Amino acid sequence: MWHKVLERNQFISSLYHEVPKLIDVRIVGIKITDEGRRVSLHFNMPKFADNPPAKWRKSGYNAVFVELDFFDIQELKVSYSKENLMGNITLEKNEQDKFKVHITGAVNMELVADIGIIQTVSGYIDNLQGENTY
Rank of each mutant, 00 (worst) to 15 (best):
W56L: 05
M1A: 12
F70D: 07
D50A: 08
A113W: 05
I12C: 02
T120R: 09
V112I: 15
K4R: 14
Q129D: 02
F43H: 09
S122F: 01
E67W: 00
L76W: 02
Y134R: 08
Q74R: 13
G123F: 10
Y134T: 13
I103L: 07
T33S: 15
M86V: 10
E131K: 15
K82N: 12
F48R: 02
G116E: 08
W2I: 01
D24M: 06
L22R: 05
M45N: 08
T104N: 12
N108L: 04
M45Q: 09
I23A: 05
K93I: 07
D34Y: 06
G87Y: 03
E7S: 13
N94E: 11
T133H: 09
L6G: 02
Y61F: 15
I118R: 00
V112P: 05
Y16C: 03
Y124H: 15
I23Y: 10
L41Y: 04
G29I: 06
L22G: 05
I32A: 00
T120I: 08
Y16W: 05
P53D: 07
R38Y: 03
L6N: 02
V19C: 04
A106Y: 11
V101D: 03
G60S: 12
G60C: 13
T104R: 12
V107Y: 03
K58E: 15
E110G: 12
I89P: 01
F11I: 08
F71K: 10
K93D: 06
K21S: 13
K4W: 01
Y134I: 15
V66P: 02
R57F: 10
I117F: 01
D69I: 08
L128D: 11
R37Y: 08
K4E: 12
V66N: 04
E95P: 00
K47E: 12
D69C: 06
